[in-house]
Simulated scan of single mutants.
Amino acid sequence: MSITPPNSGNNISKGIALTLISIMIFAVQDVAVKMLVTDYPPTQVVMIRFWGVAVFTLVWVMREGPIRNAFRTKKPFLQISRGVLLVLDIWCFSAALQFMPLSDLQAIFMLFPIVTTLFAVPLLGEKVGIFRWSAIGVGFLGAMIIIRPGFQEVNIGVWFQLGAVTTFALYTVLTRLVSRHDSTTTSVVYMAAVGVVLSTAVGIFNMVPMTLNGWLLMALVIVTANVAHTLFTMAYREAPASALQPFNFLILPAAIIMTVIFFGHWIDMISLFGATLTVGAGLFVWWRERQKEREAKRSALKQVPIR
């Protein structure tokens, strides 16, 4: 079986391009999911989605060679954990879509890069200084402005979305971690296998008959899910997480545009202000990371002896 070996993560331009494309596809998928969860249980939507993902993955892998080769991993626990986190993320996000507009949910999702940075400290060994901790504090302040606890009743969708942010941030860090050891093919196979088992174990007991329009929307979700997550995994194999994080903020304008076009809803100005604070904090975290990388490179160059 021809499987691409782990990448050292230095092709930043390619990683950015893959990230931008995956964000656009994720936006289309989110619209389709929101339309579905208004008529069908989120657990059913997630279950059928993973069935489709599994079929696509099986066909793809079998064209390259024996499927048992794709299951060979140096980090089985991390691969399984990654799959579980992705299912939890999709469950939470799908449930949140039942209660809140897509643009509002994505405004809360702007916490994702900041939460990813927090998890990267213990899991990836990254160090966080006073400036980055301050930016993280500002990011959470922005999230509180969006949620406004004590000034309005906190929608249950907010709690689901916070769960989605946490699980997806962990999924992202583990994606970067396993990419050091396993191929993209292996990561996608484990994601599909764990997703099918876990989502079916829950969704099979809560099914509702679907119309033709529902099945067409499901087909769109399945195709976009396969393409987007494969590109997402590939992006984190091509470039460091710190280089890709700022581009994840484009999820918000994409969601605002999609929400206006398909649902006629505009995000309110207070939520937009809070989201702007969170985005700004996330961009500052990224900027500080890039500055530290440049300083480390300059320091290393100064220590090279001149011959």
Rank of each mutant, 00 (worst) to 15 (best):
M1Q: 08
T4G: 05
S8G: 13
G9E: 05
N10P: 07
S13Y: 14
A17L: 14
L20D: 00
I21C: 09
S22L: 03
A27F: 00
V33W: 00
V37K: 00
V37I: 02
Y40D: 01
Y40S: 01
Y40W: 03
P41M: 01
P42N: 02
T43F: 07
Q44T: 04
M47G: 11
M47N: 11
A54G: 10
A54H: 02
T57I: 03
R63E: 06
P66N: 02
T73Y: 06
K74F: 00
K74S: 03
K75H: 12
P76Y: 08
L78Q: 08
Q79V: 07
Q79Y: 06
G83H: 11
L85E: 01
V87W: 01
L88S: 12
F93C: 04
F93L: 06
F93E: 00
S94G: 09
S94A: 15
Q98H: 05
Q98F: 01
P101D: 00
S103P: 07
L105A: 14
I108A: 05
F109Q: 04
L111G: 02
P113V: 05
P113Q: 04
I114G: 05
V115M: 00
T116H: 03
T116P: 05
L118G: 12
L118K: 11
A120S: 12
L124W: 09
K127E: 06
F131A: 13
R132D: 03
A135T: 02
G137C: 13
G139L: 01
G139S: 03
G142I: 06
M144Q: 08
I146G: 02
I146V: 14
I147K: 00
I147P: 01
R148Q: 15
P149C: 07
Q152V: 13
Q152R: 13
E153A: 15
N155L: 07
N155S: 15
I156C: 04
Q161E: 15
V165R: 01
T166M: 00
T167M: 04
T167P: 03
A169E: 02
L170D: 02
Y171T: 10
T172A: 11
L177P: 04
V178R: 11
V178I: 15
S183C: 02
V188A: 06
M191E: 03
A192R: 00
A193T: 15
V194L: 07
A201D: 08
A201L: 13
V202Q: 02
F205G: 13
F205M: 12
V208G: 09
V208S: 13
P209N: 11
P209L: 09
W215I: 10
L216K: 06
L216C: 05
M218A: 06
L220Q: 08
L220T: 12
A225T: 15
N226Y: 11
H229P: 05
L231R: 03
F232L: 14
F232E: 11
F232M: 12
T233D: 05
M234D: 04
M234Y: 09
R237K: 13
S242P: 08
A243P: 03
L244N: 14
P246A: 13
I251R: 14
I256V: 15
I257W: 05
I257F: 10
V260Y: 14
I261L: 13
H265I: 05
I267E: 06
I270A: 13
L272Q: 05
L272C: 13
A275H: 15
G282M: 00
G282P: 04
L283M: 14
F284A: 14
V285W: 01
K292P: 01
A300F: 10
Q303M: 11
R307H: 11
